[in-house]
Design a protein around this nucleic acid. Structure first.
Lengths: 131, 131
DNA sequence: CCGGATCCGATCCGATACTG
DNA sequence: CAGTATCGGATCGGATCCGG
């Protein structure tokens, strides 16, 4: 039937509705970078700040808080002077990291094709379009 | 050395910088839903609109245009009355869909734990926090 | 070193109305 | 059916200043 694909899509996406909410958190602008950067082991605030390069202190803090709240990151404070804070991925987050690695791999493999496609699209739809 | 993890993180994320730009497009609020919904075959505009349920016509159009521009979707117009437009995933997008499926699977498996973690976090950090 | 608080411009996105 | 156009609120995100 011609409906079958639409019905199936409906099911998939409706089931996914709370999922989308989860993914929106996780797919925030900086979340992927943080999780990738933290994947090799505990990492400090300043290390993250320099590692991601482009992130502001504000967004780093906010994103860390959200990831901590979602149970993806554990925050450990060492009461030393100067203070030292380490962020560690939870098991849940390490699983997620594997999917992210696949995503990053995909982006690397196809970003050339994507750029080409964009250029072609922009040229045939009035050359002045934004990113 | 204690630097090694930070150095590695820096490398990974800096290489990923143009990648983040790509992923930002792809990880837009509705992109995943559209790609998942279109994964089983060509799908029409209205079918998408009903399948995703929560998306506005405006956002559907904008997201479709962006995905088309990025070369993830092919738009086919049948000059009939009433008009009929079908959207089809490209091979590149079908690859991406596999990663998305893994992501969705992750979100399904862990959304309970995430909700629990959030509740705990909110309780011990002044109960009134937003989503 | 690791943040929190505030201001403010940029952007996203939904609601609504109109079209071929 | 498949869009486009415009408005206005909400949210994002950078800059800056302050504190433990």
């Amino acid at each position: 039937m011609s409906h079958s694909s639409a019905r199936l899509a409906t099911q998939v996406v409706e089931e996914g509705c709370p999922i989308v909410e989860v993914l929106d958190h996780v797919a925030g602008k900086w979340s992927i970078g943080i999780i990738v950067a933290a994947a090799q082991g505990p990492i400090r605030f300043t290390e993250l700040e320099r590692a991601i390069e482009g992130i502001s202190r504000r967004m780093l803090t906010l994103t860390l808080r959200r990831l901590e709240r979602d149970g993806l990151l554990v925050r450990t404070v060492y009461p030393t002077v100067p203070p030292k804070v380490e962020y560690t991925l939870t098991d849940m987050a390490r699983e997620l990291h594997e999917s992210f690695a696949a995503l990053v791999s995909w982006a690397e493999r196809h970003r050339g094709a994507i750029a080409t496609s964009r250029a072609a699209y922009d040229q045939e739809h009035g050359g002045a379009q934004a990113s």
